[in-house]
Nucleic acid binder design. Structure first.
Lengths: 209, 209
DNA sequence: TGAGTGTTGATATTCAATTCACAATATAAG
DNA sequence: CTTATATTGTGAATTGAATATCAACACTCA
């Protein structure tokens, strides 16, 4: 039996793998069965070398004449980035952004789904909002433990960010996607992805100057 | 008269400068006037060296005893990343995400504002949506030229992405913030920032495995 | 058959970003 | 005055990511 060696992939490569897969799904729907590195590169706005390098890192080999077999490649990417049994995600902060993300995401990935939301607004709690049940934030800990949730999306107000993050960490969350404008600090071993719209726009504004 | 030397700053530094400034605003409100690199680093979840290096790059000097003067630092960052007269931004695609971003962003920055939105849904066009006027996408080109818009936020459906991007480029847009799940290619000299929620979540899912 | 073309896979190189290590300096305390 | 401590500023080293280069291979066509 092959031992499940854990691949230590660069973060950027993982992001690209996720995107390769999405594009490859489309190609499959268009009836394509094989693809060359330069084709995939073009669709992703990358160089062919970059694509080949990524695929080399995950140990996938193509053929000189036919390129890569899309079906196999998709399967391998899935094997690497998906959890076998899927992962449930919660979202905290059912404001505009929270609702947008929830609706946007619903049904996009079968191994990954936002299963429940939390908010402190009693108007919203106890009901279905944007297609998923919304509970009061006081119930986060219980829910996370019971359902073994590992990932949370954070879309609360700046003021609430630190407190909610603490709750999530206390509850045992292992990864946080922080969409607030407040930078977070997390302990060793907890994974954090942050993204801030204002920062992106300010960067663009600087670049076009 | 000092010649306006254009600082070639690393992209990552620009992003951090934007965030330093936001945090420093808060510190000012709390009555703080000076700050040390290690304090700023802690708030940003960075190392002190990183902070000092960034400030070195923009040519700001602190004092060994008092650290950095917040007011001066904020002013300098503004000088570097803001346009003198401010910049107007448009948003294309008034769906859930578009509305969320618009409301979220409104009034956040005085030098930067989303002034108008565009959509192809006639229900929305010609009205005020999420606080800003929403026009039909056929009017993009005229608007961009007349108002000298340089930056656009793209929140349309995957299917529409390429066409709308082409319209924006034709109209003379210089920077695009792409929130769709479709990777874009832009010509030399046009700035592109892409961000995809699904990718972030898949990356997190991989990391917590 | 054999030259020509286009592809992959991999090593080497370059480039960008971060971190290390420490000199220089200011302040406080003895 | 001298020592101890805490800070900044920065050259050098390191790490991480992207790119260049090319051998090996498979197919095509003359």
């Amino acid at each position: 039996m092959a031992k499940n060696t854990y691949l230590e992939l660069p973060g950027k490569t993982i992001e690209r793998l996720s995107q390769y897969r999405r594009i490859l799904y489309n190609s499959i729907h268009e009836g394509k069965t094989n693809i060359y590195s330069h084709e995939l590169a073009k669709m992703m706005n990358l160089t062919p070398v970059q694509v080949r390098r990524d695929l080399m890192l995950i140990g996938y080999s193509g053929s000189q004449s036919k390129g890569y077999v899309i079906k196999d490649l998709v399967a391998l990417i899935g094997k690497i980035i998906d959890s076998e049994k899927g992962q449930d995600i919660i979202l905290v902060g059912m404001g505009n952004l929270g609702r947008a993300i929830t609706s946007y995401f619903s049904g996009k990935r079968d191994k990954l789904s936002i299963v429940s939301a939390f908010d402190n607004d009693l108007q919203k709690t106890g009901r279905i909002v944007a297609g998923i049940p919304c509970h009061h934030i006081s119930q986060i800990k219980e829910f996370v433990k019971k359902e073994n949730i590992q990932i949370a999306v954070l879309t609360v107000s700046p003021e609430a960010t630190h407190d909610v993050a603490k709750m999530l960490l206390d509850a045992g969350i292992r990864g946080i996607l922080n969409y607030t404008s407040v930078p977070l600090t997390v302990p060793e071993g907890i994974h954090l992805e942050e993204y801030d719209i204002v920062t992106s726009l300010e960067k663009l504004a600087y670049l076009v100057k």
